[in-house]
Simulated assay, not measured.
Amino acid sequence: MPGATREHAVGLTIQEMARRSGFTEPTLRYYEKIGLLGTVARDKASGHRRYEPATVERVEALSCLRSSGVTVSGMRRYLDLLARGDSAAGDLRDLFAAQAERLAADIEQLQLRLAYLRGKADMWDARVRGDTAAENRAVEEITHLLQQFSH
């Protein structure tokens, strides 16, 4: 193909797909095995996997979902809904909205953990400096933060 890049001429190798997506090679093989990737083309000469543009797009979408905390079953649901087309638009909206809420809750917990770590650093810094008042303030803040952690 004149002007075609190597990627579009023969597809990405599994190593290239792993680097591009952030998934490990075993994860890509597993996702193929359980049907998340559809049929992955094979090089006729070697039999090695070759990820063609449509599969690359699917893997990249799954990578975005996974990095947002979507489970394998959630990815499967997404692909099933996507295959239904526009009739599934409401269900897709609900799927993404629910995941966004879960992610927001995770971020809130991470912000609490960050504040806790900073508070502990402040407490130990105050102790190093011999500032008892600052150390007591830090301990109060840490105690308040600990009460906010979900169990």
Rank of each mutant, 00 (worst) to 15 (best):
M1P: 08
G3D: 14
A4R: 13
T5E: 05
L12E: 00
L12T: 01
I14H: 02
Q15E: 14
E16G: 05
E16M: 00
E16H: 04
M17V: 04
R19S: 15
R20E: 11
R20W: 07
R20G: 02
F23T: 02
F23A: 04
T24M: 10
E25L: 06
R29H: 07
R29N: 01
Y30L: 09
Y31C: 05
I34P: 03
G35M: 10
L36E: 03
L36G: 03
L37A: 07
G38L: 04
G38I: 05
G38F: 02
V40M: 07
V40W: 05
V40Q: 06
R42G: 11
R42D: 13
D43W: 04
A45K: 14
A45H: 12
S46I: 04
S46T: 15
G47I: 00
H48I: 00
H48N: 10
H48K: 07
R49W: 08
R50H: 08
Y51F: 08
Y51G: 00
E57R: 08
E57L: 09
V59G: 02
A61Q: 13
L62C: 02
L62S: 02
L62P: 02
C64G: 11
V70F: 15
T71E: 04
V72K: 02
R77G: 03
R77E: 12
R77Q: 13
L79F: 05
L79K: 06
D80A: 13
L81A: 00
R84I: 09
R84D: 10
R84S: 10
D86F: 08
S87L: 10
A88Q: 03
A89G: 09
G90N: 02
G90R: 06
G90Q: 07
L92T: 05
R93V: 06
D94H: 15
F96A: 07
F96Q: 01
F96D: 06
F96H: 05
A97D: 12
A97L: 13
A98G: 11
E101W: 04
R102E: 14
A104Y: 10
A104F: 12
A105N: 10
A105E: 13
A105C: 00
D106E: 15
I107F: 09
E108Q: 12
E108D: 12
L110P: 09
L110W: 14
Q111E: 14
L112E: 00
R113I: 08
L114D: 13
Y116R: 13
Y116S: 11
Y116K: 11
L117V: 14
R118F: 02
R118L: 09
R118N: 11
R118Q: 13
R118H: 15
R118M: 10
G119R: 00
K120L: 05
W124I: 13
D125M: 09
A126I: 00
R127C: 15
V128T: 14
G130Y: 09
T132Y: 06
A133C: 11
A134E: 06
N136F: 11
R137W: 07
R137I: 15
R137F: 08
R137Y: 07
A138E: 01
A138D: 03
E140I: 08
E141K: 11
E141N: 11
I142W: 06
I142Y: 10
T143E: 14
H144G: 11
H144I: 08
H144Q: 15
Q148L: 09
F149Q: 05
